[in-house]
Design a protein around this nucleic acid. Structure first.
Lengths: 170, 170
DNA sequence: CTAGGAGCTGGAGTGCACTCCAGCGCAACC
DNA sequence: GGTTGCGCTGGAGTGCACTCCAGCTCCTAG
């Protein structure tokens, strides 16, 4: 749409679009209600108003929303996002503090990533178990003793052979 | 505590521990209340009772709880976990259906992993932005035009030099 | 035999993050 | 100049996943 000549070095801010709430909602996937609610909650400081009182979102606001979304999606509570934002409204003095908060969040995300991968492994293992049970026509393994269960998994995964298992009791 | 001789091949189920609710809570990190609530909600079908009515968790129940935890942590709602469990109570005929559900969940987890990594990148980028701003003593970039902002990031990351930027207006 | 502690039940309460709604204003179109 | 559409506000409502609680039972130790 708006093609900006690369020769422009001194940029006029007015050239930037400044979207309405509906567009922002579509762009970000946040509902209109959520956008309004975030603003009331102090999560979106850069939103402006047009003459008739409607919200306008300049590009900086949109960028900020993306950050807020990243923080929210990665598990930071709304209250903590607000706290991050309230740190001195963008003054240089608070940058290190803000950075520290973000780095803390990074650590949490990394932890979450590991956990997710572990959980994925658990679910995949269960799928393999079902595959093994189906292959040899067993019902459910949940009440089989550990060692038999282990063999169901190990055999299937390692050897590919299907030894006949006698289900112990029941 | 309970040492099991490795010579035992035919395992008697009685030899397995069967924990009390407190131990399970400590093992899994789920609160006692949550364990009881999950059971009421039908998420824990393998829990037994001792003569005096207290819950006993045989090893199979504990394994099952781990699966439920994996599903819950990866975003499956309680209602969906129940649905998964209610599929014919462990009969062979429903294994393919259960597998399909788990495979669907796997796909969701993978998607979530990608999203998390993206969000991590967003937060890391913001940290880099702060680093750049601090290095050249600027306040907040949120109302700078796009291209200046881009330069703040790109300069810092690619060249390591710090060109003097004139903050346009404000 | 009594006191303390753990566990049980059904039901009420909580916290979070939205989501919905009534009633209003502005602006454009017919 | 009405009506249609979009947006605004403050406040109430919702859904989910727990979490707490009162009042009970059972077992064990003293």
């Amino acid at each position: 749409m708006t093609v900006r000549s690369p020769s422009l070095d001194r940029v006029d801010t007015a050239a930037a679009p400044a979207l309405g709430i509906r567009q922002v909602s579509e762009e970000t996937g946040l509902s209109i209600d959520t956008l309004r609610w975030y603003e009331r909650e102090g999560l979106l400081p850069l939103v402006e108003r047009s003459t008739d009182g409607r919200r306008r979102y300049p590009p900086g606001a949109l960028r900020f929303i993306r950050l807020v979304q990243a923080l929210r999606r990665t598990g930071m509570p709304v209250a903590d996002v607000r706290q991050f934002i309230e740190l001195g409204g963008g003054e240089l003095a608070h940058h290190p503090e803000r950075m520290a908060l973000l780095e803390q969040q990074c650590a949490q995300i990394e932890q979450r990533l590991v956990e997710l991968q572990d959980d994925l492994a658990v679910v995949r293992a269960k799928i393999e178990t079902y595959r093994g049970l189906i292959a040899r026509g067993l019902d459910c393994e949940d009440d089989l003793p550990d060692d038999v269960l282990d063999r169901v998994r190990a055999d299937e995964l390692l050897t590919g052979t299907l030894p006949v298992l006698t289900s112990p009791q029941r």
